[in-house]
Simulated assay, not measured.
Amino acid sequence: MSSTSQQVDEQAAKWAALRDLGLTPQQEAEFQHWLKADKRHLGAYARAEGVLIRVERSHGWARDISSILPPVKTSPWTRRRLFFGGSLAAGFAAAGVFGVALWKKSRRQIYATGKGEVREILLADGSVAKLNTASTIEVQYTDDARMIRLVAGEALFDVAKNKARPFVVRANDTLVRAVGTSFTVSMLPRNPVRVLVKEGVVELKRADATAAPLRVGANSQAIAPHDGPIRAVPIDRSKLVRNLAWEYGRLAFDDQTLEAAASEYARYSDIRIVVDPAIANKTITGSFVSNDPIGFARNAGALLDLQVEVNGREVKIFRRSP
């Protein structure tokens, strides 16, 4: 029999508190099994853990919610007591109310990655943001909306459903609105804003426009140039997967020229790949570690019978001598 939403929340709260205490190897195996048993479990657990993190960081929260939580005999309050101080259901409900209160008072939070770094961030509502290399986002949650501003770079968002609070990402003058979906937004120098929709549906519009938003479904790419209309085109699933390889610290090329591959690697490392113009249009296919340009160059040399020379912060690829 399928568990109710309340039961799932109770189970998630229990696991969050237990993990806070520390799991035995057997408990960790049971937790992983529970996560995989129902697609609702991951989102519920993320919400519970997000609440715990914010409870830990906040001051004076016991005073604000003492009328909601079951009474306890000892103090001070701790993360685990929130979930074990009486009914788990009551504790989780109280935490949910507290989470809404935090949204109302939320300050803008900034998250960033350095060159070659990928970072995953659990947001207050259970959504997850994953930042690609050299990327920055600003996050502000209120009781009316979940607002994200992409300051630079690229980010993937796995959005927790909440129809009452729209999830909106702003990149320059483009707004991307989503409810319960997975998509990336990229804003790179000398390129238009691009949105890849992995799952679900998003709506795009200009911040100052009155026209109806453009709806874009899964396996599609939306392009928003600063001087032209937003347009959407379907994208092959295999290409979508390649474009998202950075999630796992990889760059995936399919008949990519060496010149283009070198340019892509410049986003991930300060080690410069210099390609001889005579071979710049040679193409390469494969998956490579995103922050290892030397490893890529050596692999490309082996695959294409080229010579590679490493000199400090520079790696050269050129034809072999006759």
Rank of each mutant, 00 (worst) to 15 (best):
L258N: 02
G228L: 03
N291Y: 03
Y268Q: 13
E264L: 13
L244A: 03
R267D: 06
A211G: 09
G228M: 05
V201G: 03
A222V: 07
A262T: 13
I273H: 04
S290T: 09
S269P: 10
A278P: 00
E247K: 12
A218W: 02
Q221K: 12
I279C: 07
E199Q: 09
D292G: 06
I273Y: 03
K198F: 01
F253K: 07
T285S: 15
V275E: 07
E247L: 15
R237V: 07
I271F: 02
L214E: 00
P225D: 00
A222H: 08
R231Y: 10
E203S: 15
V233Y: 00
V216C: 04
A260I: 06
A207K: 11
A262D: 14
Y265K: 11
H226S: 14
V202L: 11
A262V: 13
L251P: 06
D292N: 14
A222P: 05
H226N: 06
A278D: 12
S269H: 09
N219K: 13
S238F: 05
I279N: 08
D270L: 11
L251R: 10
Y268W: 15
A222S: 09
L214H: 01
P234M: 07
E259V: 01
S287R: 12
L214A: 01
G228N: 08
A209L: 02
S287E: 14
D292F: 06
S287P: 02
D270A: 13
F288A: 04
S290L: 14
N281S: 14
I235M: 13
V274Y: 08
S238Q: 14
E247N: 10
P277N: 05
A209H: 06
A224K: 09
K239V: 09
D236N: 14
Q256H: 14
E247V: 11
A266E: 14
P229Y: 10
G217K: 10
I271L: 13
E199N: 07
A211P: 04
D270I: 08
R231H: 10
